[in-house]
Amino acid sequence: MSAARRARIRRGALRLLLLAAALLAWPGNARADGLVLSLSKTRVTITSSFTGENIVLFGVIEPGADMPATGASPAHDVVVTVRGPNQSFIARRKERRLGLWINVDSRSFLAAPSYLAVLSNRDPMLMSDADTLRQEQAGFGNNRLLQRIGADYADVVPQDPFRQAFLRVKQAQGLYVENVSGVEFIAPRVFRAVFPIPGRAPIGTYEVVVKVFTDHILTQRAALRLDVAKVDFEQAVAGAAQDHPWLYGFICAFGAIAVGFCANIVFRRD
């Protein structure tokens, strides 16, 4: 192989890589092999009237090399996982001691998703074998939740009471969502999923991961990003509190006194 030919191949490969990167970087759309995804919105903007929003994900599974383009297309299973920015949490357990319910035990959850939505077209447990599902973190119970155990970090068995309590509390807050019929196939290769971004959703970049199983084997995967950000007045207030804390503090303090003074004048009777 001549040096010129080798260089041409390298250039060609580079061009392909750039094209793939450009496609992936295109906001709201992703294309990985045979999976095309699109979000109804790539940026959730929080204004003063924000109370939450539903985001729609569309996906098309293109016929790939592993599936025949002709004949009956095999059944596909889809798992959509949306993860919010990571946060650390402490879970505590109460017990009765001397008549009082007090915290006796606690666990630290390290870098757990602050928001988690898992949607699928059917129970993920039916899509593949348990090991594959756990490895791919497909399914609500299969998401890794690292706990601090001594000096180590590890995930524990799904039956662990702290792990279950953590998921239960987060679900009650509306920040963890599980829907085993949340992915709807419009056509054999076209699906649609709706996930809620609640009003109290944390700010940051969310990751939307889609995994397609065909005949119990993972065949496609693709990821998208979704930004949740404050804008306008909300951003101005949060920014001022962060960047000019002294000024912000004094404005708040004197503002409070001004409001108190106004109220006193307005209601003055004597």
């Binding site: 949490f89 879970a91 505590r92 509390v169």
Partner: peptide, 15 residues
């Protein structure tokens, strides 16, 4: 609050 049995014995807070 301290004497009554809480609805959920577990609580989660942001670290």
């Amino acid at each position: 609050d301290q004497i009554a049995r809480p609805a959920d014995l577990y609580s989660v807070i942001i670290d």
